[in-house]
Design a protein around this nucleic acid. Sequence first.
DNA 1: CGGAAGATCCACT
DNA 2: GTGGATCTTCCGA
Length: 212
Amino acid sequence: MSATDPRFKTLEESYYLRPAEEVAADLLGRFLVRRIRGRELVLRIVETEAYLGARDRASHAWGGRRTRRTETLFRRGGCAYVYLIYGIHNCLNVVTGIAGEAGAVLLRAGEAVQGAESMQRHRKLVRTPGSGDLAGGPGKLCQALAVTRKHDAHLLSRPPLLVTRGEPVSTADVVRGPRVGIGYAGAAAGWPLRFAIRGNAHVSRPRLKTAG
DNA sequence: CGGAAGATCCACT
DNA sequence: GTGGATCTTCCGA
């Protein structure tokens, strides 16, 4: 990967200062780059979910809940929000919007561009991975890139974890539907805030059908 | 201070 | 398709 490859240029600061819904759709095709032990692991983002903050019941910041954990969500857009779920798995989000708003984009799935062997080792898989096994799910994605809560609040414009321009996807190739695992969220559970690259094999289940 | 719930994943049936 | 693993966070008492 050449240093002049435009796909590895970081995004403008202002990129993240937009509504989560907008950033979630635009992050598809972008690269998530992890530098670790002298290696560079690269995932192409293929699935995201937007969380809208105080007005979104599925958001950790629902109702303006501001705690030690969620404090990161209220930062200015452009940093990581990493939390632990089910006592086991880490989930990586990109914080969006101006400081004081709690928008975020959950990175749900990625496709290996570089360093797939390292990712497989991080995943500690018994069987050889099929499509979607490497980073097809928010917990898997974090495990593949060795992302943990230590990266919470990390600025994504600098190593060892950054988002770069990647290969942007046209809106015609974006599909959307309801978010996963938030049945408790009332009306918000039906909001079509999950985005994926149309026809991509590395997206996590269940499959999306709605076009957007 | 206790308890319940959770933006999940894996192995096995 | 099911159940088990595993623990932080938050709220109510």
